[in-house]
Design a protein around this nucleic acid. Structure first.
Lengths: 347, 347
DNA sequence: CTGAAAGCGCTTACAG
DNA sequence: CTGAAAGCGCTTACAG
């Protein structure tokens, strides 16, 4: 940097100011400086800048360590966050701290490497959020707690559920099951599980639909069992919604075992599943696809705005999933429902 | 740090030496210092340390931007690398630079934020590798080029193929197809595609087996078409190996359309697919599971050793995938092969 | 619109 | 085994 200053015949500080535009520089000077930087192939040193300015321009995202494992959507969050950070001159580091072990997180934040953190897999009452609030450490969430403090972006679960139900009831379905994630995640207050449960119950009741929900662990086996149970206990079901990717193959298997055809006898709609996941199933599933890229981007921008004082007052943003048609949902034909399975079917 | 020094009644530099053990400190002094650090809740500042020492203790991993999209295994690399880095006192940042756009990568490395980088999705002749070599910038690869320079860790594709073929030929299969990834990735010299192709051809020839390979784009539709073609052109096939996750549902669909049952009529083995992916299929696939976590860990350790001068001479490590049985592979029963499909089958 | 100088919080020769 | 001091490459009041 000193070399640049010399070559441009200005002082060191002028180069610095030119670099980050914190005070007016004459056109002429600026030109000489950029020319000198060009010629010397100069690049500012991020560590030095960080040390002097107290801002590292490094963000962290917390890698969730979760029972169901990381999926495509979580991956999109991270990738999109990295990309957005980079576009804004930031770097993104990944940290994997246990959700319920805020001590690790405390260590990491207090190190001072990072300006702010992005949380995902947020719980209704999240120890990490409580910690960051207490430390007054800048953060945003993909997801949200119950209290509406701090900025967040999240999926609009009400809207998503409404759209999915509207899709099915528009096809004539009135008896709809919902296979949620596990009881354990519900008990732990994991946002999506809690919110979809409530939305499903409220909305089916309000629309006079017959709704039944099941928790289900994230495995094909658990999906198989849950679905078998559902089909025996509720033989008149004509549609199943599933927010549990890993249970899906078991669910489809159970449906086939009951000699039901999708979508003729039973419609299946995936909730908050990426299209890529929906395409892995036979038949390709109709899904409510989550806006993974958008959420990652918005969360990152929100955090950066916050850090740079351009905060629009910690916005709360929710975005619904959008319906992507597959081949697993179709008109309800109550004549060919489960109750008639023994009658066989013509082509 | 000065506060710590004062409280421990030693000089600033002694605290520093105690911290990173670069010179002997008496037991007594060390105790006073750690006590003082404890009491003041002192944490060393990584940026300052980095600036002074010329080592940021930050690593980068290049996010692949690829046609087939990121999968579970790639995710394991990243997660495992982050974890290993953290265990060794490093941080991991994610960068997404285009594979064939080394300019971005040059920018990023020359910034000086990062001590070394981990490459994945390495091609036989990889512009990123050439760049990093030219810049003499420390790096390791998950994957490898054709020349055996620099340290790497990679899947042992020969061994993996051998194991898969042994599994199938042990079950009596002699006519085996291999659905690889796309022609485009082969032409681009993407390591896994090139190496499995060669291994498959060499080994089937050497064992006197009937082998046929197909390239296939990463989509169910492409898988469907490729498999249909295979089954019509090679009606005596009894086994198919697939290294193409996204094509899998189409392949299974095509098999079902030909009225073939898995595994009675046709065995299917996934190659380099995670068990989690194999479980998404019906029936659950037999797969050669890649050692994702291990590769991520080893690559990171290799890089760190390299940076810290503990290099064991840039080791070249390959690890085979290991067989995880599913329900998609079984004994070859040539009486019930495709050629007999019209004869029907007893339960 | 521009300069001279202190300081960010460490590491590491240099000296004893 | 321990200290005093220079320096890493920037930012940012302070002054003009």
């Amino acid at each position: 940097m000193l070399d640049v200053a010399k070559r441009a015949k200005v002082s060191l500080s002028t180069v610095s100011y030119a670099l980050n535009g914190t005070r007016p520089i004459s056109e002429e000077t600026r030109r000489r400086i950029s020319k000198a930087m060009e010629e010397l192939d100069y690049r500012p040193h991020p560590l030095a800048r960080g040390l002097a300015s107290k801002h590292s321009r490094i963000l962290a995202i917390l890698f969730p360590v979760i029972e169901r494992g990381i999926g495509i959507t979580e991956f999109e969050f991270i990738n999109s966050a990295a990309h957005t950070a980079s576009q804004n001159g930031y770097h993104l580091v990944v940290w994997s701290a246990e959700t319920n072990e805020p001590d690790e997180l405390r260590q990491l934040t207090q190190q001072g490497l990072v300006d702010g953190v992005i949380l995902m897999e947020v719980h209704i009452n999240d120890p990490r959020v409580n910690l960051l609030r207490k430390l007054e450490f800048p953060f945003t969430m993909i997801g949200r707690c119950d209290d509406d403090q701090d900025g967040y972006v999240d999926i609009d679960f009400d809207g998503t559920m409404e759209h999915a139900i509207r899709h099915l009831s528009g096809l004539g379905h009135t008896r709809i099951a919902f296979v949620n994630q596990s009881q354990a995640t519900y008990d732990a207050g994991y946002g999506p599980v809690v919110r979809t449960k409530k939305a499903f119950e409220d909305q089916t009741a309000a629309s006079g639909l017959n709704g039944v929900m099941r928790f289900c662990r994230p495995s094909p086996q658990a999906g198989f069992e849950a679905c078998k149970e559902l089909l025996s206990e509720h033989p008149k079901l004509t549609a199943i919604m599933v927010m549990n990717d890993r249970a899906l193959p078991g669910i489809l298997q159970a449906i086939a075992d009951h000699n039901l055809k999708i979508p003729q006898d039973l419609s299946v709609v995936a909730l908050v599943s990426s299209v890529r996941m929906a395409e892995m199933m036979i038949p390709k599933l109709t899904t409510m696809e989550p806006p993974g890229v958008e959420l990652g981007k918005l969360a990152t921008e929100l955090l950066i705005n916050n850090l740079e004082g351009k905060s629009d007052g910690s916005p709360r943003i929710v975005i619904p999933c959008h319906l992507v048609m597959g081949e697993s949902s179709g008109p309800c034909n109550s004549n060919t429902g489960y109750q008639n399975q023994q009658g066989g079917k013509l082509p």
